[in-house]
Write a protein that binds this DNA or RNA. Structure first.
Lengths: 199, 199
DNA sequence: ACCTGAACACCGTTCAAGT
DNA sequence: ACCTGAACACCGTTCAAGT
């Protein structure tokens, strides 16, 4: 969203929201190191000290951005889940998961960076857990005999695959052929970890 | 500012090595944000400008630290591989992999941070690829019909599991019970992804 | 109540100058 | 050749003061 109008009316109380939005843009554009408090204040057209009325420090601001990211993320995988038959759900969610990571690489990395102290911020914790739960439920259905292990294994798989793709760690695999690879691998995962060949 | 320990004999040419060692210590102690050029210079007992005779900038220094980390890492998983029978190798390496990540969380995160521009530094690339190859070979043996997919899947699994453990993303799993979980999961992975039940 | 201006204690990096 | 001292352009954060 481009603000062509100088609608600097942050004296109402929406500075907080404006800060989170601008921070998200900043992050998406230039990564975690472009996300500075002073630069943020500049973007929003406010003094360098103003953000500190709404966030204790930089970490608190980053936590709010990450929480917003998890909300987006949950939306994406829940959308994939809803658009498909029950026994296709895990595969669809896994694909949506990796696609989200590939579409918003810097946001995804921020969301899973331990630098942000996930356990300390309650809102962030809740948002992250909701996303985890959503995938875990679908994964557990694939292996009713060991639902806990199935959930962790599935989560590790999609998370690990995403990180490797983002870091260009995978030889010869770029964004171009990533999608087909993801489908192959999630199918493989579902096939092997799924319930014994019945359906 | 007075140096009580006059062991400052870096006029020989080992300043570079001393910087990497000190940087590794700094990272292990305080994480990536404790790793500053000025603090590093202080530790080594040298002026703030001196490190720039040996590293173009902070990123180059960090790349050298990461490369050193990959050397340690390769040693750890190769050690695990060597100490076990052929059909146990993948499991042992996977365990060693996760254990390394848990033992050196901040180093591990740095090694897999995309912030460090893995592809740009040739030494770092080589060190990282050597570690990947080592695990990939063992994983490929588990599924000779699809060695490439097996390697990626295995790598994603151990990497994803490591990151989740480090970020305390896994509900109720801490360093205490992590080891047993890792063994259960790597066994599960080997069982499901391994060759058809023969041995 | 919310924001500004100025200040403090830091950074990474550069460069002339020392030895 | 290798290092220092001082400087530059930044940070995150605090706080008295403005409205």
């Amino acid at each position: 969203m481009s603000t062509s109008e100088p609608s600097d009316r942050y004296h109402h109380g929406d500075l907080r929201r404006a800060l989170v939005e601008a921070a998200l843009e900043l992050l998406l554009e230039g990564g975690t190191e472009a996300l500075g408090m002073r630069e943020l204040a500049r973007r929003v057209g406010v003094s360098a000290a103003a953000p500190y009325r709404h966030f204790r420090d930089k970490q608190a601001l980053i936590q709010a951005v990450a929480a917003a990211g998890f909300a987006l993320f949950l939306e994406a995988i829940e959308g994939a889940k809803a658009s498909v038959a029950t026994d296709e759900q895990f595969g669809a969610m896994a694909e949506a998961y990796v696609q989200f990571a590939l579409r918003y690489p810097r946001l995804y990395k921020l969301m899973f960076s331990s630098e942000l102290g996930k356990f300390e911020d309650k809102d962030l914790r809740r948002a992250a857990d909701a996303a985890y739960e959503s995938l875990a439920v679908a994964a557990a259905k694939q292996d009713p005999e060991a639902p806990g292990e199935a959930a962790i294994s599935a989560w590790a798989f999609v998370h690990g695959l995403s990180m490797l793709l983002l870091d260009e760690q995978l030889l010869g695999v770029s964004a171009a052929n990533a999608e087909t690879l993801v489908r192959k691998l999630t199918r493989r995962h579902a096939r092997r970890f799924g319930k014994p060949p019945t359906a």
